[in-house]
């Protein structure tokens, strides 16, 4: 496979969840438009993050990429191969290449299984016999993520949140996947533990050449770990750019507002900072506003925003900086 070609290509991905009607037949008349035409690509070895507020469709996107959900339409290509229409029976080989880290280390590990069984599960399910035996492979994985190999026979409840997240990470690494999708991997952890896990994820990436798709809402963590960042709002990507471009020169008003709202641990900033106050709440994804979906909360909205949907296009000098806005910010 050509190394320059992107590892993951997502094109016009759509996922609508039908909502049952109230009538006798409960016909689905409406749909939650969770993901509505999302396109992006992820290069080998990079960390691509998707940020946005709850309900914007970032977790659904993660589940579509890993094929835990089947898309309504659109394509997902991994290494050039379309995986979006694979029937369920043929998904198992895919799981070798794509693995997922979950948010909650308490519910993502089976409490009745030992750590050895949990981390060794991928070997068992995929019928892989690693060199030196499964037990040794599991113990090597445990030390790779900073746990002791002696933890093999213990149960999840004996571990703290951060250690459990390490167990989950060891499990995702078992089959040497090409792509790891991490859905809020550190948001359930305490600050001091969060930093340990973030460092671990970065070390593993350097060591094993992993590619990450990270879903997160903490903009400080995202800035720390990402190479490129996409911002989603109501099922659409509103801006994609290299990390520094996005954080220093946000073009979409929503990105700018979100960045200005992040609290900073420094009292001197209290007075200096200009904060953009957004009005109101995110509209319902069942009936998203016409035109630009952000126009109901945007202070720059004009008539064109209410009627015409802005395309996601290159804006500004930085290559690969795309934004979907009729009146992009200029800085």
């Amino acid at each position: 496979m050509n190394d320059a070609a992107p590892l993951l290509e997502v094109e016009d991905l759509v996922k609508h969840f039908p909502v049952k009607g109230r009538g006798l037949l409960q016909r689905a008349t409406q749909a939650v438009q969770a993901v509505d035409g999302v396109s992006f690509s992820v290069r080998r070895g990079e960390t691509f993050s998707i940020v946005g507020e709850s309900g914007c469709g970032k977790s659904t996107t993660a589940r579509l990429v890993t094929r835990l959900l089947a898309p309504t339409s659109g394509t997902v290509r991994l290494d050039g191969k379309d995986i979006s229409t694979l029937p369920e029976r043929q998904l198992r080989p895919l799981r070798r290449d794509v693995q997922m880290i979950f948010q909650d280390p308490y519910s993502s590990l089976n409490p009745r299984h030992t750590v050895g069984k949990i981390v060794g599960a991928p070997f068992r399910l995929q019928d892989v016999e690693p060199e030196g035996g499964r037990k040794r492979a599991v113990q090597e994985l445990l030390s790779l993520v900073g746990l002791s190999p002696e933890h093999y026979n213990r149960y999840p409840h004996e571990f703290s949140g951060g250690q459990r997240q390490r167990i989950g990470i060891a499990r995702t690494l078992a089959l040497k996947p090409k792509l790891i999708v991490a859905d809020e991997p550190v948001s359930a952890l305490d600050v001091s533990i969060q930093a340990q896990v973030v460092n671990l994820l970065e070390d593993l990436q350097d060591e094993l050449g992993l590619t990450y798709v990270m879903i997160a809402h903490d903009l400080s963590v995202v800035r720390h770990v990402s190479d490129r960042v996409a911002v989603m709002y109501l099922g659409k990507i509103v801006e994609v750019a290299d990390r520094d471009d996005l954080y220093e020169h946000p073009r979409h008003p929503y990105t700018a507002a979100m960045l200005s709202a992040v609290p900073v641990p420094d009292t001197r900033r209290r007075t200096e900072r200009e904060r953009i106050r957004l009005q109101g709440d995110v509209p319902s994804p069942i009936d998203p506003p016409p035109g630009c979906r952000f126009h109901t909360r945007c202070w720059k909205a004009t008539e064109v925003c209410r009627t015409e949907e802005p395309p996601l296009v290159q804006i500004g000098p930085a290559p690969g900086h795309l934004a979907a806005c009729h009146h992009p910010e200029e800085k």
Binding site: S192, A195, V264, D266
Partner: peptide, 11 residues
């Protein structure tokens, strides 16, 4: 303070 990625400083 060292554990937190700082938003207001260079990465």
């Amino acid at each position: 303070l060292g554990s937190m990625p700082r938003f207001d400083r260079p990465p």
